[in-house]
Amino acid sequence: MTSMTQIVAFGGVVLLGAMSPGPDFAVVVRRSAVSGRGYGMAAALGISMGVFAWVVAAATGVAALLAASAAAFTVVKVVGAAYLLYLGVKALRSALRRGEEPRPDVAADPGRRSPWAAFAEGLLTNVLNPKAALFFVALVPQFVGGGASLADTLVLSLIALGGTVTWFLVVAAIVGTLRKAFARPAVRRAVDGLTGVALIGLGVKLAAAGRP
Rank of each mutant, 00 (worst) to 15 (best):
S3A: 10
M4V: 12
Q6C: 03
I7L: 15
V13I: 15
V13A: 14
V14L: 00
L16P: 00
M19H: 02
P21D: 04
S32P: 09
S35Q: 14
L45I: 10
I47G: 07
S48H: 05
S48V: 02
M49V: 14
G50R: 05
G50N: 03
F52G: 10
V56P: 09
A59K: 07
T60E: 12
A63L: 04
A64D: 11
L66E: 00
L66P: 01
A70E: 12
A72N: 00
F73Q: 08
F73G: 09
V76I: 15
K77E: 10
K77W: 02
V78Q: 02
A82C: 14
G88Y: 02
V89A: 13
R93D: 01
S94L: 15
E100K: 14
V106S: 11
G111M: 03
A118D: 15
F119N: 07
F119D: 07
A120S: 11
E121L: 13
L123Q: 02
L123T: 02
N126D: 11
N129T: 07
P130R: 05
A132N: 15
V137K: 04
V140G: 01
F143Q: 01
G146E: 14
L154H: 02
S157L: 07
I159N: 09
F168W: 12
F168N: 09
A181D: 03
R184D: 15
R188A: 10
R189Y: 02
G193P: 07
L194H: 09
T195C: 15
A198I: 03
A198Q: 06
L199A: 12
G201D: 04
L202C: 03
L206Q: 12
A208I: 03
A208K: 07
G210T: 13
P212V: 01
